[in-house]
Design a binder for these strands. Sequence first.
DNA 1: GCTTGACTTGGAGTACACTCTACCATTTAT
DNA 2: ATAAATGGTAGAGTGTACTCCAAGTCAAGC
Lengths: 130, 130
Amino acid sequence: MTIKQVSEKYHITADTLRYYERVGMIPPVNRSPSGIRDYDEEDLKWVELAICMRKAGLPVEAMIEYVRLCHLGDRTIPDRLHLLETQREALLEQRRQIDKTLERLNYKVSCYEDAVRTGHLNWKPGCCKR
Amino acid sequence: MTIKQVSEKYHITADTLRYYERVGMIPPVNRSPSGIRDYDEEDLKWVELAICMRKAGLPVEAMIEYVRLCHLGDRTIPDRLHLLETQREALLEQRRQIDKTLERLNYKVSCYEDAVRTGHLNWKPGCCKR
DNA sequence: GCTTGACTTGGAGTACACTCTACCATTTAT
DNA sequence: ATAAATGGTAGAGTGTACTCCAAGTCAAGC
C-alpha cells in the first residue's frame, strides 16, 4: 500500500505518516527496492495504533518509547505494561476533567437556552454564574 | 486577592494568569491604584472557568470569543449559546475518542499482565495484536 | 522518450499555549 | 531606612506536534 493510499484510508497527511516514522512513533515501514514506502498489514496496524493514541491526546513521546521497548524484545514486557498503565491513568484523569467541564457546559447551555426564550440570562441562585 | 494568592489557590503560575488576562481569556482584572492586580470574586469566577475549560482541552480562542461576546451584552446571548454548544460537541467527541483508546489500552494491559505471569505475550486470536 | 504526478530526504516554518527574561516599581518585614 | 519579596510590562524563548518547501528520484500513460 502506498503512502497516498494509507493517508486516504486514515484521513491523515503523507507528511504526518513520514513524521511518525521518522521520530519512531511507528517502526520503519517496508520499502520497495527503490526506497518507496509499501505499507504491509503490520505497518498498517502500527499506523492505526499511533493514530488512535494521538487522537486521544496521548503524547508522541509515549508511543516512541513503546515502539522502542517492543523492538527490544520480550524482556521489556514489564516496562511496556508499566507504560501502558501510566497512559491509561492519564486518559482516565483526562476523562474526569472532560466530564467536569461538560457538566458545567451543560448547565450553561440550559441557562442560555432559557435566555434566548426569555430574552435575558437568569442564573439559578447559588450557582457560579459564569 | 493578589496574583500570588490566586496562583497558589488554583495551582497555576502568575505568568499564566497574566497571560490569560492579556489575551482576553478572562476580562481585565481589578487593580489597586498603583496598578497591582487585586482579584475580586468575579475575577476568580472567570479564572476558575478559564482553568476548567483549558484542563478539558478547549482552545484558548474559544474562551477569548466567549469573554468578548459577554462584554458585548445580552444581544450576543444566541451567539454565546452557539459557541457553548459547539464546545460541548467537541468535548463529547473527545470523550468518545478517549473511550475508544481506553478500550484498546485495557485490552493491551490485560494481555501484558498475562505476559508478565507466563513470560511471553499471547494476543487473543483475531485481535489487532498491537 | 517524455511529460505528469507521486515519491524521497533534509531542513525550515507554523500554530498553540504557555514560560522565561530583563528591567523597573512597589510593598513588606526588620 | 533598607533589604527582600512581590508586582508590573514588553518581548523573546520553549515544547509539542505537525506542516511545508526545495530539490531531486521514480513510475505510469501517451
